[in-house]
Design a protein around this nucleic acid. Structure first.
Length: 293
DNA sequence: GACCAGGTAGCAA
DNA sequence: TTGCTACATGGT
């Protein structure tokens, strides 16, 4: 394993690995004590993921972010965890409203993530009407059942399945694995990508609302899931997924932003939350309200 | 035993 | 376009 360290002091605005990886943005990392979404991790607990066939582990200890990987992964770690974001500047530039200030203050160091597009897409198809801990469980199950296992230093890691691997699954199998009514959505979307009909990464080159419409062609993907993929994978920091929590925030804190339709409400709340980095603001508000912390 | 969870598809008006 | 409703499943 190759290793490296990055001083947390070099990361403007800090880095809270726990809040970043356990705030319901990404379901593609696993905590090596197996207690993800149940308890706070002990200091120095490792998280791991697999990207492009390479195992990557990260943890924070002694004021540093440490990584280990089967390859030189520092550029990948920087990308996945958005270490080059100037979080301090993002927070300072955010609109000065009470809820947002409170959320940013309560969760200092939480960063957005960059997930691989296909894994992110499937994760959020699974997320419909589901608690974050169970979404994580489903995604882990898909990796274990259909992904490529990698044995490194006596541990087995599972890559999230490729579109081709996941397209071999049947609806019945996925129902058996507890995906419920999402099972056919996952199979059909995997088939669409495997067949070359469309690929979520294609949306990266489009204008924001066109990108959202593009993603909605996948089965099981509506406006909200599309916004999650844009925000957590494709670099659209202005995307504001309108989920149950942000809708309650709109009702309680930004009632004038409720414009009826998803598209119109989305534009209004995006402007209210600062436009360019509205998705950052949304993620903090989501986590703040959902955890009650 | 309701009620809820990072909603969407399908259909009617 | 907008407004229902059915859809699985596990935790509280």
């Amino acid at each position: 394993m190759e290793t490296g360290t990055i001083p947390l002091a070099d990361l403007a605005g800090g880095m809270d690995l726990y809040r970043t990886l356990e705030s319901g943005q990404t379901y593609l990392w696993r905590r090596e004590d197996g207690e993800m979404y149940r308890t706070e991790p002990a200091p120095g607990t490792w998280y791991s993921t697999v990207v492009d066939g390479e195992v990557i582990r990260v943890r924070t200890a002694d004021g540093r972010l440490e990584w280990q990987s089967t390859t030189d992964a520092e550029p990948t770690v920087r990308r996945l965890l958005r270490l080059d974001d100037d979080l301090e500047a993002i927070v300072d530039a955010a609109p000065d409203d009470p809820l947002l200030r409170e959320a940013y203050e309560a969760h200092r160091g939480m960063r957005l993530v960059t997930d691989p597009a296909f894994g992110c897409l499937i994760s959020f198809i699974c997320s419909a009407q589901m608690r974050v801990s169970r979404i994580h469980g489903m995604v882990s199950t898909l990796a274990r059942e259909y992904g490529t296992p990698l044995d490194v230093d006596g541990r087995t890691y599972y890559a999230f399945p490729t579109p081709e691997q996941l397209a071999t699954a049947t609806e019945a199998e996925l129902r058996e694995l507890g995906l419920g009514y999402r099972a056919p959505y996952v199979v059909r979307t995997a088939e669409m990508v495997a067949d070359g009909e469309a690929h979520p990464a294609e949306a990266r080159n489009l204008e924001y609302e066109a990108a959202r419409d593009y993603l909605c062609q996948f089965v099981g993907v509506g406006d909200k899931v599309a916004d999650c993929v844009l925000l957590f994978s494709l670099g659209f920091d202005e995307a504001v997924p309108l989920d149950t929590w942000i809708k309650s925030a709109i009702e309680d804190y930004y009632p004038d932003c409720d414009r009826g339709s998803y598209a119109a409400t989305s534009r209004a709340i995006r402007d209210r939350l600062g436009g360019e980095y509205a998705g950052y603001a949304q993620t903090y508000i989501f986590h703040h309200l959902r955890t009650g912390e």
